[in-house]
């Protein structure tokens, strides 16, 4: 009877362990998406600043699909149309747009820190469960020798 209880415990431990491992993988995937977004937003900031430095009247190429582009001129690098969410985009002054993007980066960084902390906690739980699994395994080994 007692043996059956231990087997169930081991199964439970393994199930819990698999749960935490899946959680860590999901958190890592989410962090990867956040990292990509932060990189993209930093590139946008760099591009907007470069366009501002190049100034009005500079020729640029606008991509039309993946293999074609048409020539255009920068009319006003001080105006930026920014996606503000929910399908709405608004014309902003360059400084306002840069500020908005920086705020979004800061929000994403805060979210990343929360997720990283969650990973640390899940790792700790995993270690705990591994230790319990090892201890239970040793106990079972001793009993089977007797």
């Amino acid at each position: 009877m007692a043996e059956k209880k231990e087997t169930v415990s081991m199964e439970e431990l393994n199930r819990e362990l698999r749960g935490y491992i899946a959680q860590i993988e999901a958190l890592r995937a989410e962090i990867a998406v956040i990292n990509e977004t932060i990189t993209e937003y930093r590139t946008i900031i760099k591009t907007l600043n470069t366009l501002k430095e190049l100034g009005k009247g500079k020729n640029i190429l606008i991509p039309v699909g993946s293999i074609a582009a048409i020539e255009a001129k920068i009319e006003n690098p001080d105006k930026v149309v920014l996606d503000i969410g929910a399908g709405l985009s608004a014309e902003l002054k360059l400084e306002e747009a840069l500020g908005q993007i920086a705020t979004q980066i800061a929000t994403l960084e805060a979210l990343r820190r929360t997720l990283e902390q969650a990973i640390v906690e899940a790792y700790e739980k995993t270690e705990e469960l591994l230790e319990k699994t090892r201890a239970l395994g040793q106990e079972e080994g001793k009993k089977s020798k007797k």
């Binding site: 503000i84 969410g85 929910a86 709405l88 985009s89 608004a90 014309e91």
Partner: peptide
């Protein structure tokens, strides 16, 4: 959030949906 942001925008700004 978009509605809140919209309210804070000056009247002369172009908007696109």
């Amino acid at each position: 959030q978009a509605l809140k942001f919209l309210e804070s925008l000056p009247e002369d700004r172009k908007l696109y949906y």
